[in-house]
Structures are given as structure tokens and as C-alpha cells.
């Protein structure tokens, strides 16, 4: 494949213009757009990257529509988070509640089956947080962005089950 000098220069210009547009779009929408708080945020971030890549590679066919698509996705994300902060019903529609998978030395079997998580995955989560045994663990929670939070015993002393108000009813 050959690439002429004009094309090379054009490609540089295209990259610079798209880079600047993307920075402006993201900056105007705020940090929240790229934070990974629920299941959907990460997917949208990857989709943004994919749109940007296609826009630059196929700049002849789709440059401005690419930038517009990028702006559209960012706007939709912005509106969705804006609504979910203001209206509870929108928030619970967009985000699932965290689920308690292990508490008080017992596996919450029903919740584990419902969320399709097995015991080995809980062990892995414990090891990843640097603990070695279920003994020191008070609770394991599946968060709405799909990560597992491991809470150690020292936190248990201040927390009783009633304190886990953010956990959906089992």
C-alpha cells in the first residue's frame, strides 16, 4: 500500500482536528461521562473509542458524521446521568441495585444463583483484595458495575445487617 504526501498530511490534519473535537466534547460534558459507575458506562466508553477509530480510518466517507455520532453518544450519556441524579425512577431503571452475596459467615445461595456467581469467584475476589480466608471477611457485595467488593471484619464492628440499606431485598 502506498500513501501520497498529500494524503499523509491530510491524515495528520484529520487526526488533530478529531483529537481536538473529542477533547472539547468530553471536557464540556464533564468527568462523569467516563466514570465507570454502572454496567453501561464502560460499554459506552469502548463504543466511543470505536467510533473515534472508525472516524479517523474512514475519514473520507464519514468524518463529520463520526464526530457527530461521538457527540451524540456523549450527550445521551450526559442526559441519562443527569436524569438519574434528579429522578429516582430513572436511576433505578438505568442501574441495578448491589447484591449481597456473602454475609455473616454464610453464602447467600439464592442471591448467588440469581446473579450467576459461584463460590470460586468469591474466593478469587477475596484473594484479589489481599485476604486469605473467609474468616476475616464480613461481607461480599456484587456492585452495579459488575465488580465484587470485599469487606473485612474490622468494618463489621460498625455495620450490622440493617445498615446495608443499599442492598436490594433478598
Amino acid at each position: 500500500m502506498t500513501i501520497s504526501l498529500i494524503e499523509a498530511v491530510k491524515l495528520i490534519a484529520i487526526s488533530v482536528v478529531s483529537f481536538i473535537s473529542i477533547v472539547l466534547i468530553l471536557r464540556s460534558s464533564g468527568k462523569r461521562t467516563l466514570s465507570k459507575m454502572n454496567a453501561f458506562d464502560f460499554i459506552v466508553t469502548v463504543a466511543l473509542g470505536s467510533v473515534l477509530a472508525t472516524t479517523i480510518v474512514n475519514y473520507k466517507a464519514s468524518f463529520w458524521s463520526g464526530i457527530l455520532t461521538f457527540a451524540m453518544l456523549v450527550t445521551l450519556q450526559h442526559v441519562a446521568t443527569w436524569l438519574s441524579v434528579r429522578y429516582k425512577s430513572v436511576g433505578s431503571l438505568l442501574k441495578s441495585d448491589p447484591a449481597l452475596l456473602y454475609y455473616n459467615d454464610t453464602f447467600q445461595e439464592q442471591a448467588m444463583r440469581k446473579e450467576r456467581v459461584d463460590r470460586n469467584e468469591l474466593k478469587q475476589a477475596i484473594r484479589k483484595s489481599g485476604y486469605v480466608s473467609f474468616e476475616g471477611i464480613s461481607a461480599i457485595i456484587l456492585e452495579s458495575d459488575g465488580t465484587l467488593t470485599v469487606m473485612s471484619d474490622s468494618e463489621k464492628r460498625q455495620l450490622e445487617k440493617e445498615d446495608f440499606i443499599f442492598i436490594e431485598k433478598q
Binding site: F42, I43, V44, T45, V46, A47, L48, G49, S50, V51, T54, T55, N58, S62, S65, G66, T69, M72, L73
Partner: peptide, 10 residues
């Protein structure tokens, strides 16, 4: 899933 999503919009 993210890449397919981006591509399908473009």
C-alpha cells in the same frame, strides 16, 4: 459489545 455498538452507529 462496546466495539460492535460503536461500529453499528457509524
Amino acid at each position: 459489545v462496546g466495539a460492535v455498538f460503536g461500529n453499528m452507529l457509524i
